[in-house]
Design a protein around this nucleic acid. Sequence first.
DNA 1: ATTATTTGCCTAATACCCCTAGGAAATCTA
DNA 2: TAGATTTCCTAGGGGTATTAGGCAAATAAT
Lengths: 189, 189
Amino acid sequence: MARAGLTADRLVQAAAELADEIGFDKVTVSALARRFGVKDASLYSHVKNAQDLKERVAMLALGEMADLAADALAGRAGKDALVAFANTYRTYAKLHPGRYAAAQLPLRPEAAEASAARRHSEMNRAILRGYGLPEPAQTDAIRMLAGTFHGYVTLEMAGAFSHTPRETSVSWSRTLDALDVTLRNWPPE
Amino acid sequence: MARAGLTADRLVQAAAELADEIGFDKVTVSALARRFGVKDASLYSHVKNAQDLKERVAMLALGEMADLAADALAGRAGKDALVAFANTYRTYAKLHPGRYAAAQLPLRPEAAEASAARRHSEMNRAILRGYGLPEPAQTDAIRMLAGTFHGYVTLEMAGAFSHTPRETSVSWSRTLDALDVTLRNWPPE
DNA sequence: ATTATTTGCCTAATACCCCTAGGAAATCTA
DNA sequence: TAGATTTCCTAGGGGTATTAGGCAAATAAT
């Protein structure tokens, strides 16, 4: 009997694809095993359990997003960088909704440490540097930025904006314009 | 044999409490049945299925938040209204994390119609009126507001801000200050 | 090339969870 | 109080997560 050639990496990769196809919450050990034409139990030699599998998908997504964002950021500064960075996330979410959802998974502290989370916040800070905000305003602004990007993309994907005719991409651009203005006029105190 | 006195409302109420205690994703028909000392099958006379139960919790949460927001908004305008409104959501999320998560559940169009979703966007618009933004800027601003509130609260709850010592409540206040500035200086075009 | 060893996948079994069908008892109605 | 209704139960089918233990295939050692 020929083997299926499973490895942890191939499982995670396939799970990520599955997530984009059917939704991250529907990614299950069984479904993944089915996709490989293999019994459920066979996956447990490569992956600790379902939680572990999901965390690995999350880390894959975080890494991919960090890579893309780093590329987008290269050679840009100021509003240019802000827009490029923001669009990276939004585009990734549209292209890979399952992976994006995975990236939202609350990671255990240890897993978070091993993830690309740090790179993300580094990049956030790099963008902010262009605006010359002193600490602690910088931290406040980073949190606002992260929240706005994430919230907008999440709500848009959930269809929360679909009741109003206005093109969501346009609102997104205006939101980025507004954020740029905000950062340039960050309130003192 | 005495009856447990189940009704759809009591089930939904209990499910909401359960969600706040153990997390919305862990709310299950079985767990709920256990809480009432009843067999799983008994719940199906009151609730169509697990999905239905979850949707009802979502609608309960949306309604509660709308009520609270409406109260908070009463008699306020401008930045005052903005802050009161935003704090309603954030406070609710902290007090009722499970319900807040439930409110994020993508509802089927029909369920969404019956929900308090419309009240929420009405209130968003009411706040914006104070800033005198013309359409379509108003729609763009609403989307930005909703995204920022939701994103910030979600990330904060997920612990995404806990690696930096700065108090998240302070960053939240500064974010609201910044939003106020943004709305007063909404970029033209 | 034959053993020995590791590794990959399987069978079997347990424990939950979701849900349907049909029955009996508690409660309401006439 | 007889009948109708509602509430909850038993039984049972199907899906997912996970562990334990076994055989066979790929790999390493002799």
